[in-house]
Design a protein around this nucleic acid. Structure first.
Lengths: 186, 186
DNA sequence: GTCTATAGTCCGATAGAC
DNA sequence: GTCTATCGGACTATAGAC
């Protein structure tokens, strides 16, 4: 096949997203996805560990972006500022994929098993952020709670961005979400 | 004497916890659990939707405790105080089950699919708390972020309590966790 | 690429409690 | 009779093993 064609993994991910939208996650078999992508069922499982994983970015680019932003922040910036800025950075990263993010979010919102996987990915992101904060000299408990709070800020900002047509861009939604957190302790 | 021994659900939960500890979640089949509990495989699925759910309290008593505490808090208390107190209340509720909590936490920590389910339950708790806060007149965004922060506070306090022999009681761990969150914005 | 174990669903049957 | 809890067997799809 030509080099302009997406690889099998990309076609599988695309086919899965379409099918989950058309007939729902439960009503879609791995065989359905494989056939639409023009590969065998077996090939699906060579690229993705399970039927859920196909909706998640294998490259983990979002997490890498956030962790890099945490590591690169000015050394004297307080933990919550560091995390907030890093999450905003993640927002910039995703901003131009809004339509994809919406379709993906709709599929996930419609199915509890996909929600579970999404929450696991967010928790993994939280752990990575906590580790990165700790590496900056932040104490473990402070790093853990700052990371969890940061993930919550990201998640709520993201949710507003995908579910509301009138919402501003993703970095702004995340900024607002962080401001709401700050307002709680004021 | 009835045709069956009473308490099938409890026996299944107990058997599952033992088997997950003895040989791991993946290496335990639903049939194994059912046999140890003295029922058939089919009966397992009558009581629990799937193999993971057997580790989770079907009565949802923890969530009810937290939601009730949120609803019963003094009307003028700020959202974060309300949530913090409610989570501490949950801590009191769990305090006398430390050994059980430890075994359960060990099983969950050893398996990603159980972690996914645990995270889902925590997210459900978060939604319930957000709804309860909103019912008190807290704006939706503030309720959502306060609820998420509260769940993070609970989760980190709980983690310290189960994983550290020298930790104080659960309400105190949760209080410390809340203090760490407050310190972030100070 | 084929084979197989296991999760999880659906049908109905049965037996006790009220 | 109704309600609830158990059991049996057949069935599909996932996911891993070979």
């Amino acid at each position: 096949m030509g080099r302009w064609e997406p690889g099998a993994a990309g076609r599988l991910a695309q086919a899965a997203l379409e099918l989950y939208a058309e007939r729902g996650y439960e009503q879609t078999t791995v065989l359905d996805i494989a056939e639409r992508a023009g590969v065998t069922e077996r090939t699906f499982f060579r690229h993705f560990a399970d039927k859920r994983e196909v909706l998640f970015d294998r490259s983990n680019a979002l997490q890498e972006t956030v962790v890099a932003a945490v590591a690169a922040a000015p050394p004297d910036l307080p933990p919550l500022e560091v995390v907030g800025a890093a999450m905003e950075r993640a927002g910039v990263f995703l901003e131009d994929r809004r339509e994809f993010a919406r379709k993906r979010a709709a599929a996930i919102a419609a199915n509890p098993s996909l929600q579970e996987r999404e929450l696991f990915k967010m928790a993994t992101l939280g752990s990575a952020v906590a580790t990165a904060l700790h590496a900056r000299g932040v104490s473990s408990p402070a790093a853990a709670i700052a990371a969890e709070a940061g993930v919550a800020v990201f998640r709520l900002g993201f949710e507003r961005w995908v579910s509301n047509d009138d919402a501003p861009d993703l970095p702004a939604c995340i900024r607002d979400s962080l401001a709401a957190l700050r307002a709680l302790t004021a």
